[in-house]
Simulated scan of single mutants.
Amino acid sequence: MENDTIIHNQGLTKPEKDDYSTNNCAVTNALKIMGGKWKMLLIKIIADDCVSRFGELKRKMDDIAQTTLTIQLRELERDGIICRKAYAESPPRVEYKLTEIGITLLPVIQVLTDWNDNYCRLTK
């Protein structure tokens, strides 16, 4: 009796297109939206504060350049993770908060945080 997992009459076929191409991988697409040095931290800060203003974000992330912060916020807004509300006041006031889809990222960030804590514990 043989222990082969391939039946002899069954041919090995290669799929026409693999499901892990750069444009088709769900993980790659997700990381395009929330990846980078600052985005997850921004999402976490905005979630903790419920609503955040630009100056508050800049103070909490003192290592980030103002231009970089602006770019990261625009990308998160473009991708529907945060929404930006500008008030017609003097001086101008702009607030950022998570959208419904942005809120769904919070458990993902928590899982990654837990994984990192476990990884650090196991590799020490």
Rank of each mutant, 00 (worst) to 15 (best):
T13H: 05
N9W: 01
I81D: 00
N116C: 09
I101Q: 15
E77H: 13
N9A: 07
A86E: 07
G55P: 00
G102F: 00
V51I: 05
S52A: 15
V94E: 02
D18H: 12
N118P: 00
I7T: 12
G35I: 03
A88W: 06
N118L: 04
L76Q: 06
R78D: 06
I71D: 09
S21T: 12
E56N: 11
T68L: 02
Q110K: 15
T68I: 03
P91V: 07
T123A: 12
Y96I: 05
V27Q: 07
D18L: 06
K60S: 02
T70W: 10
G35P: 04
L122G: 13
I101W: 15
A47F: 08
P91T: 07
G35R: 08
A30H: 11
L73S: 04
A47E: 03
Q72P: 04
Y87D: 04
I81P: 00
E2Q: 11
K37T: 11
I33Y: 09
V108W: 12
R53A: 10
L41I: 15
Y20A: 10
D63L: 06
R59G: 03
Q66F: 03
Q66E: 13
K17C: 02
T104C: 07
D48C: 09
D19E: 08
D4P: 00
N29I: 03
Y119A: 11
K44G: 02
L112C: 13
T68M: 04
R121Y: 11
T113A: 10
E56P: 00
G35W: 05
Q72Y: 05
V111M: 09
A86L: 03
G55L: 05
H8C: 03
I7R: 12
C25S: 13
T5Q: 10
A65V: 03
K85C: 05
N9M: 06
W115D: 15
L112D: 06
K58Q: 02
P92L: 08
N24R: 13
I109T: 13
T5K: 15
G35A: 06
K124H: 12
P15I: 09
I45P: 02
A30I: 04
E2R: 12
I45F: 05
I46K: 08
I103K: 15
N29H: 14
T28A: 08
D19W: 04
L76P: 04
L42C: 01
K37W: 01
G80H: 13
I64K: 09
L122R: 14
E89V: 09
K85N: 11
R78P: 01
G55W: 01
D19R: 11
K17W: 03
L112Q: 13
T13C: 09
T28D: 05
H8F: 10
N9H: 09
L106C: 08
T67W: 08
C83M: 12
L12G: 03
L105E: 01
I71E: 09
K58I: 01
R121M: 04
I64Q: 01
